[in-house]
Design a protein around this nucleic acid. Structure first.
Lengths: 109, 109
DNA sequence: TTATTATATTGCAATATTACGATATATTAT
DNA sequence: ATAATATATCGTAATATTGCAATATAATAA
């Protein structure tokens, strides 16, 4: 096959997997880190910073935007991409909750 | 193409992307959640819990194990899979750091 | 030993992702 | 209007992922 059977899983599980997947590529991790590093956040900067072609970066940005990990606002000629704190916090809370719940049990490994 | 150009990115970026990618599938999210929910953590339980075939689940477990998100110890006939707190904490700290660093700057979106 | 149970591996088909050249679109500058 | 700049989309090739049937492996049970 190749298509993941998302019907078999809950909406929450699919959503979290999608968020993780969006961050599951070094270029997209690098984009997120670059957005953190700089104050201005137009796409050209990213193209110059990351050694991938403009269409490829545009595609990665689109995936991050779809996952709501970043948000972009058109600013004249260029686009201002920024991190979406709400989504990042959702990821952090999820992982934190997993760790916390698991720590309450006696581990067997 | 199709192969991600991991040479272009730092070891840290590749590592974090790999961790995220390992969690980037609903079946693997479901496996992690199931490991949290139950105390005993053999694979058979997972096969009964998640509507995918045994080989498919075995494959997903392998990916989680490769990423060190879970660890398994052989226990007689079966295997005891548990979460790896160290790795999960690494993910949590990373996201937390991103949010923290970004909040220190004035957002432009 | 033979059967049973639990898990892993192999092989393969279907689908998805990654990357980029070419091209389109849209805004600003001249 | 024309050129320049910034970003998106299309088309396509290369590679990766997903899923499973069949089979292998390994431990325990009978």
């Amino acid at each position: 096959m190749g298509a993941s059977k998302s019907d078999y899983f809950s909406a929450e599980q699919n959503e979290m997997a999608q968020l993780m997947k969006a961050l599951g590529h070094p270029a997209r991790i690098a984009i997120v880190e670059h957005l953190v590093k700089i104050n201005s956040c137009v796409c050209t900067d990213i193209v110059n910073e990351i050694p991938l072609s403009q269409p490829t970066i545009s595609q990665h940005l689109k995936e991050l935007k779809n996952a709501k990990i970043i948000k972009g606002t058109i600013e004249g000629n260029s686009i201002c991409y920024c991190l979406n704190h709400e989504t990042l916090t959702k990821i952090e809370s999820y992982i934190k909750q997993i760790i916390k719940t698991d720590q309450e049990k006696k581990s067997c490994c």
